[in-house]
């Protein structure tokens, strides 16, 4: 026993040496500077957001205390005290409806085709690259496209009067926004589908499932959270875009009302929240507060839409 125990002295020397080698490292100055730079960047971005938000919230609060929910239910007006955002809310929600009904099914279907069915050849690669490029095209270009195709070509009949889409109408704007977000939906859905591990597909094929069964029962449910994330991005983008809908004529008119049929309403004039905000921002200083309030309403709607999609996504994830 005694022979096996090491002498006390050498042991303490070893301990000291270890301590010194652990403690004597130089301070990592560059790393510290880097950390401070990162923190400052974060603070700067937050400060900008806080400044903008406080500006908006101030105006929104004054409108809320003065007029309460009237601001939400009133239509447009030449007087700042009477102007409300109801037309804008209705327009924005209708346009989002177009996006959901048109861009989502077509976009997700295209993504499934590109990932699961298309042969892996040059043409497919070419198409993929171009869809990716389309996501980077400025929205004003989509506005011009909508103006040329939906407003002019499909919108005017031989007598230069309202045709299929009714010219500068809800339909034209909805179609334009749907086309605008289509590449985003395709790319994000395709990425979600691609992220489903090969092993899951192989397992499905291994028990005799067809390609359709593997896609429908295994790949799509696994990709659903990712696809939903893409749709969130698409909805937010569609709600926030001002340039294309201004080009298509959102600023000139409001929702037609009266005893029109549903189709006639869709073929009629329209507005949406970004257009309302744009219009009011150009008015006199009396409109400053209502502009802030309208921005706040748009923010709330966007957050609500995002929240719904996140909630749906979490639900899908839990089902597994």
């Amino acid at each position: 026993m005694a022979a096996a125990a090491p002498p006390a002295n050498p042991a303490s020397i070893t301990t000291l040496a270890v301590e010194r080698s652990l403690a004597s490292r130089k301070r990592d100055w560059l790393g510290q500077v880097f950390q401070v730079v990162l923190l400052l960047s974060l603070i700067l971005s937050l400060a900008i957001i806080v400044f903008l938000l406080s500006n908006v919230l101030g105006g929104a609060w004054r409108v809320w205390t003065d007029r309460g929910t009237d601001f939400l239910t009133e239509g447009g007006s030449r007087q700042a005290e009477a102007a409300g955002v109801w037309q804008g809310i209705r327009g924005t929600l209708t346009l989002v409806g177009f996006v959901v009904l048109l861009a989502f099914p077509i976009g997700i279907a295209s993504a499934i085709y590109l990932e699961e069915y298309a042969p892996d050849n040059t043409l497919t690669k070419f198409i993929n690259v171009n869809i990716r490029n389309l996501t980077g095209v400025p929205s004003v270009v989509y506005g011009l496209l909508g103006l040329a195709v939906f407003v002019r070509t499909f919108g005017l009949d031989r007598n230069d009067e309202g045709g299929l889409t009714g010219g500068k109408s809800v339909i034209s704007a909805g179609l334009t926004l749907a086309v605008l977000v289509l590449p985003i939906v395709i790319i994000t859905s395709a990425e979600a589908i691609r992220a489903v591990p090969r092993s899951i597909r192989e397992a499905g094929y291994g028990v005799g499932a067809s390609r359709w069964e593997v896609t429908r029962m295994l790949v799509l449910p696994s990709a659903a959270p990712g696809i939903l994330t893409g749709t969130v991005l698409a909805i937010s983008r569609a709600m926030g875009e001002a340039a294309p809908i201004l080009l298509i004529g959102a600023n000139t008119g409001f929702f037609s009302s009266g005893n029109q049929s549903f189709v006639e309403q869709l073929q009629g004039t329209f507005t949406a929240l970004p257009a309302v905000i744009f219009g009011w921002a150009r008015e006199t200083s009396e409109f400053r507060d209502v502009t802030a309030a309208a921005i706040f309403v748009l923010l709330v709607i966007t957050v609500l839409a995002n929240g719904t999609a996140v909630w749906l996504r979490n639900r899908f994830e839990k089902q597994w």
Partner: peptide
């Protein structure tokens, strides 16, 4: 598809469906 139904396969890494 018919072939794979009669001739099953077990893979290198366990690959349960989620």
């Amino acid at each position: 598809v018919e072939v794979r139904r009669r001739i099953g396969m077990v893979f290198q890494k366990p690959n349960p469906f989620p």
